[in-house]
Simulated scan of single mutants.
Amino acid sequence: MTLEILTSESLLPLKHGFFTRRGGASSGVFAGLNCGEGSSDQSEIVAINRARVAQAMGVVPQNLVSVHQIHSARAIKVRQTFEEKPKADALATNTPGLALSILTADCQPVLFADVDNGVIGAAHAGWRGALEGVLEATIDAMCDLGAARGSIAAVIGPSISQHAYEVGPEFFDVFLAEDEENSRFFANGEDDRMHFDLPAFGLHRLRQAGIGSAEWTRHCTYSDPDRFYSYRRTTHEKEADYGRLIATITL
């Protein structure tokens, strides 16, 4: 099966993609294109999957750059490949030939580009990272490398949607403590439960940061098991582990 790659006109003509799980070598609960080196999948199979992604992006596998994601607001500026992955959740570069990549399985994969100034970025933005400022940190890192804030386009890829993201009152309180206006991103559920709109929150933060454009591809990871891995769906189905989707962009 060939790889399925979701793209956005906002990031063209740069080569980029939000890869679905289709077209990979993994099997079992990981069936498809599992690119998560931290999963319990066979490491050699994950390496095959990542090599297929690198080939699709037109780079050698070692130039498919990624970080050790920790749900933080840390963004790093990348000028060359590194042997040991730094702990961070976003990357920015103005170096051609490097493909920035991040992994997700419900959290937001966000790709950034300032085509005119030749600067790109990629961020893993779960609720905690988004709340703490990982999207803004990515934009700042890009600007440090020569991007113009108003020329940056950002695209949020497949993420868990509001109807599938049920949370408790403590979660709601954390967002309200940050800003009472954040209540707009929650809808009432059963009893004391609520439903959080993660992509809407991400779009809000991106637009507040003053960039040129921001959009979501409108794909829900939880609701489409044939195309996407989902941590929450795996939890509900009591599976042992889950695959990780990859999103990547290169100059």
Rank of each mutant, 00 (worst) to 15 (best):
M1Q: 12
M1W: 07
L3E: 10
I5T: 07
T7L: 01
S8Q: 01
E9I: 10
S10M: 15
L12Y: 10
G17D: 00
R21I: 07
A31C: 12
G32N: 06
N34P: 07
E37L: 14
G38L: 11
N49P: 08
R52K: 15
V53L: 04
A54W: 09
M57H: 03
M57G: 01
G58N: 01
Q62V: 10
L64Q: 06
L64W: 08
L64R: 10
Q69P: 06
S72D: 09
A73W: 07
F82I: 13
P86I: 02
K87W: 14
A92G: 06
T93V: 05
T93Y: 05
T95E: 15
G97M: 11
A99Y: 04
L100S: 09
L100F: 07
I102L: 12
T104P: 04
A105L: 04
L111M: 15
G121Y: 07
H124F: 15
W127C: 07
L131T: 09
L131I: 00
G133V: 08
L135E: 00
D140P: 04
M142K: 05
G146F: 06
G146M: 14
A148L: 14
G150L: 09
I152R: 04
I156W: 09
H163P: 09
Y165F: 14
F171H: 14
F175R: 12
A177R: 15
D179E: 13
D179L: 12
E181A: 15
S183L: 14
R184D: 14
F185E: 03
G189V: 02
R193W: 15
M194K: 15
D197W: 06
P199T: 08
P199H: 10
F201G: 01
G202T: 08
L203A: 11
H204S: 14
Q208H: 12
A214I: 05
T217Q: 13
T217C: 11
R218V: 09
T221C: 09
D224L: 11
D226H: 13
R227M: 03
R227E: 07
D241W: 01
D241V: 05
I249Y: 00
T250I: 02
T250Y: 04
L251Q: 13
L251M: 14
